[in-house]
Design a binder for these strands. Structure first.
Lengths: 220, 220
DNA sequence: TCACAATTAAAACGGTCGTTTGAATTATAC
DNA sequence: GTATAATTCAAACGACCGTTTTAATTGTGA
């Protein structure tokens, strides 16, 4: 029996069916479109062209399959983020643009493009509790690193304020990549354009903008 | 038979059980926590302390109940947004702060506070196709009005750019109100603080910030 | 070729899904 | 009080859920 996929690919090197890969792709697409509760094991198996029992055999459960889906795409993105942040830091002249660029770029540009982007958006807004431990496992560290880096850029700004500003960036990012983005906008701009716009928007939010000098009155 | 709730309340003015209200409250809470696919009709009925058939009787279906839930909370928020935008316009000196204030304020401050906030965040990220027509029905008009108002503030800026910046605001807003917000931040700041921070962050994103003068290189 | 492990397949498991039915109960109007 | 409508209730509908079992099939090393 298998139940583990890591060491097994070494024992059977020439897989022609690639059941695991087909399951991962099918589950990814359905999770993006319907979320965890909305994707059924039978729909996954059908889309993958695989017997339904294959899911339990290769990944243990539906939750195990989703975890594999997330780790396959999200972990490389966060690794890329970390590497880029490290490269920026080694230049000893990090700017807020460099830091946010390192955070946003791997989401928009990677070898899997749209699927990875939308998967990122979906998982950040997924209500199912099964993804909660996965989220903190994969994200908490990289988020903390980036918030620290941004804080180093603005020693004067309140730390909690910086953390929340960063969560605004995460929100704008998640919402942007969640859909083909014809929802609010009439049409979807090219990926490079969306990326550049979100980057500039986020940068301006961190810089000490004119907004701080203006008082707003709550008109109840 | 009923199947319609609008004209019926006039015929039976003294409801002691308030089955519809209990169903709405229960469905709202469960939808916020689990999304459409994750909330079951039986869980709703149990939480409401009501027979399961009451849902079909009063709202036709689970989808009908969710529609009533959304309209009850979201429509008043958007109405408040429109009224505030109109008030700002009549002053003939609208600023980006005033416009964004009118857009954000009704989400953070209304008579139902946290439930309405989180419901707003959940519905904006809900994958189920059943909410799609509801979304465009309730949101497309108010969004268009606000984008137009912002565009009037910045006649020089590209219209598509403004629309996408506004979607960034919507994303940051949705993500902020989606959870009690202990997810990325360590703790949740008071509502007024979060509101003020998001407002300032959004304003800075629209103002012609320093980011436009700096070119970013894509380091692949 | 033969044992043996890995994988796939068909079928069923108990359970829950959203919805419907029809009778019982309650409120309203005359 | 009685007819009539509105509402609630228990029960069941067929369908689908995630998972498991058991047997058949495939691939691999001796």
């Amino acid at each position: 029996m298998s139940l583990n996929s890591a060491q097994k690919s070494r024992k059977s090197p020439c897989k022609t069916s690639d059941t695991q890969g087909r399951l991962l792709n099918a589950a990814e697409a359905l999770f993006i479109d319907a979320g965890y509760a909305g994707m059924s094991a039978r729909a996954i198996a059908d889309k993958a062209g695989v017997n339904i029992a294959a899911m339990g055999y290769h990944f243990g459960s539906k939750q195990g399959l989703l975890e594999a889906v997330l780790i396959r795409r999200i972990a490389p993105i966060n690794t890329s983020r970390r590497l880029r942040l490290q490269a920026v830091r080694e230049r000893r002249a990090e700017s807020i643009r460099d830091i946010l660029h390192a955070f946003l770029w791997p989401v928009f540009f990677n070898e899997h493009e749209a699927p990875a982007r939308r998967l990122m958006g979906r998982v950040m807004t997924e209500p199912a509790e099964v993804v909660e431990p996965l989220l903190s496992l994969v994200f908490s560290d990289v988020i903390e690193q980036f918030v620290l880096a941004v804080a180093a850029c603005f020693p004067k700004q309140d730390r909690a304020l910086i953390a929340q500003k960063f969560s605004f960036v995460v929100g704008a990012l998640s919402f942007t990549v969640l859909r083909p983005s014809e929802r609010l906008l009439g049409s979807a701009p090219p990926t490079e354009v969306s990326f550049e716009r979100l980057l500039n928007f986020s940068i301006d939010g961190f810089l000490e903008g004119p907004s701080v000098s203006v008082n707003s009155k709550d008109i109840p």
